[in-house]
Design a protein around this nucleic acid. Structure first.
Lengths: 343, 343
DNA sequence: CTGAAAGCGCTTACAG
DNA sequence: CTGAAAGCGCTTACAG
């Protein structure tokens, strides 16, 4: 006679198995396992031991079917490739993991059809809520159709102001960069940035202009140099700026990649960074900032935090707590070696 | 009297609702919707119209509870930050999306405890299978415990040879790089790479040494220069190599970041790239390769494809088709401007 | 404190 | 071809 519990080989243990082994009803077993207090301590102990012995793991599908929560959410991204989605996704995943929630990942790849398809699938799986992660800060069309669960938009806000959107304060980010440079005594500041078609570029520039105005200054060249987000543009634009405005003593760049290009040109030109010209980037993309010469100061938009907040706001909305509202979060200056006090 | 169908406001339509509206039994409605052929065409049409009218979406939880498939898989990553996981994840997500499968994303953050926790959660949700994505090519301990569903390991192979592991052929990648340089007439080739503690570094070096030997050549310096994976090391190592071995006419780098550093030093030294010295990187990381001076040739390990294959292999395993086996995939040379035929 | 019963939304033999 | 019934694994009133 074996002392092994009777586990029908090829099958995960069910609550019925546990109840049988513990000598109680399934109802009681359920209560014991779920920590209800209408259960005698000794009974609970018996049940818990049986569950342990059978490696019982409650079937989440059955639980979810009962109508309450499923403990799942959908994370809808439009672009996994873009590096902005990843930290946000990590932050959200983290917030959810702590709350015993599992997350479905769906990449719509920027395609509205795919997005709709994914939303349907997620709803048929009865997710408790949805997080929509954008890859640009431009506002996006709200999810199509009637969505019966709470939705939180992150990074890219929904065009509908009644939706909950958690975003980054790019105007503030532009301000932060300029204020940092001004605090270091810089007065002749240029701004080289990405495509004007991006809200992010326009917002950062707006913040920069405003911060300069507050200090009674104007931008070198009269306005931002819009171009593209890459190093090649950074190199080209730096040439232009230094040639036309030799008095320039600081350059605020709309991305770290642009800043890398700027740094290279200044090096080619034999200009001293940070002494003669200070340079600050945007995004704080470690791979780009950490090993440049000199190491690049930058604005960090705390994307992982943004994701975590979005996760928590979604929870709140699911719980029906005081309805969360849209929020914008500031970034922070990360000082490295490319910015320093003037001479 | 309204012509609207009777949809109890706040509730998703159920199969019962559809059946009622269509005037058939739920059994028949189920068959009609699932495309069974024991259903009269006219009946099917009635049911489908009713479903359409009610925006009926079958409850995947109920379906899954019936014991068959749930149509879900778990994607277990150890490190979302690392950029290797992302393309793999995209490939897998893509393969699954096409197959009507939803994927749970879990980031264990390199922690075995978290991993175990996530596996439990996924099993309680009755996933049909698991994909485990590593962030290094070093082999990893197989998933702990008794896992009742198929598992496919990607990028980082399982230490258990009986497990299914889909990996990149780094030895072959090292070969590819050297053969490319040799084809361009280079004979004095150095290898600057990352930490020797990484299997990836050792494998690529092994392939490089073997390819050189096949051509009757030896590595400049007698062996690879192991260091770290970043630009700073690339810059330092390039100095050493050029100083000690002025005859060097090509450098194979273990990562694109190292290669960027090498490129910078060669530029500082006034050496002509690719004419005098050709440089090839590894990873084909667009952000790094596309805007360097000159643009960087590199080895691409087709990570997205790797993820897609892993997804398909998992399907096969779930379907119980001929059991999939471990496989290794070759990379490919991506030519840009940092390699060229010898003068 | 414990248990029998109903029910969540579906699918699947099994009769008719 | 159609439908009544059982059942997937759980939870939740409701009796006892």
């Amino acid at each position: 006679m074996s002392t092994e519990p009777e586990i029908p080989a090829n099958r995960a243990a069910t609550l019925t198995d546990v109840a049988k082994l513990a000598g109680v009803s399934v109802a009681t077993a359920s209560k014991a396992i779920n920590g209800r207090d209408e259960v005698r301590a000794a009974t609970r102990k018996k049940v818990l031991e049986a569950a342990e012995l059978l490696s019982f793991a409650p079937n989440a599908l059955a639980r979810g079917l009962l109508g309450g929560r499923t403990g799942t959410v959908g994370l809808l991204t439009s672009d996994l490739e873009g590096r902005f989605s990843i930290p946000i996704l990590m932050g959200a995943e983290d917030a959810f993991g702590a709350g015993q929630v599992s997350v479905f990942l769906c990449d719509a790849r920027g395609d509205a059809i795919r997005e709709r398809y994914h939303v349907r699938a997620l709803l048929s799986r009865r997710v408790d809520g949805l997080i929509v992660v954008g890859s640009r800060t431009d506002s996006r069309a709200p999810l199509a159709g009637n969505i019966p669960v709470p939705v939180v938009y992150v990074y890219a806000p929904s065009a509908d102001p009644d939706d909950i959107s958690i975003t980054v304060d790019n105007v503030g980010g532009g301000r932060l960069a300029i204020e940092h440079l001004i605090a270091y005594g810089r007065r002749n500041i240029a701004h080289i940035t990405g495509e004007a078609g991006f809200q992010a570029a326009r917002d950062r520039a707006e913040g920069a202009v405003a911060a300069l105005a507050d200090a009674g200054l104007t931008m070198i060249g009269g306005k931002p140099y819009f171009g593209s987000w890459d190093e090649t543009w950074g190199r080209a634009a730096a040439h232009i700026v230094v040639e036309r405005h030799p008095e320039v003593d600081a350059i605020f760049c709309g991305s770290d990649q642009i800043a890398r290009g700027v740094l290279e040109t200044l090096r080619d030109l034999g200009r001293d960074v940070p002494g003669s010209i200070s340079v600050i980037g945007f995004d704080n993309w470690e791979a780009i900032t950490a090993h440049s010469r000199p190491r690049l100061s930058s604005i960090d938009m705390n994307l992982e935090h943004l994701g975590a907040v979005a996760g928590r706001r979604l929870f709140a909305a699911i719980d029906g707590d005081d309805p969360p509202i849209s929020e914008q979060f500031p970034g922070r200056v990360v000082m490295r070696d490319s910015t320093a006090p003037l001479g």
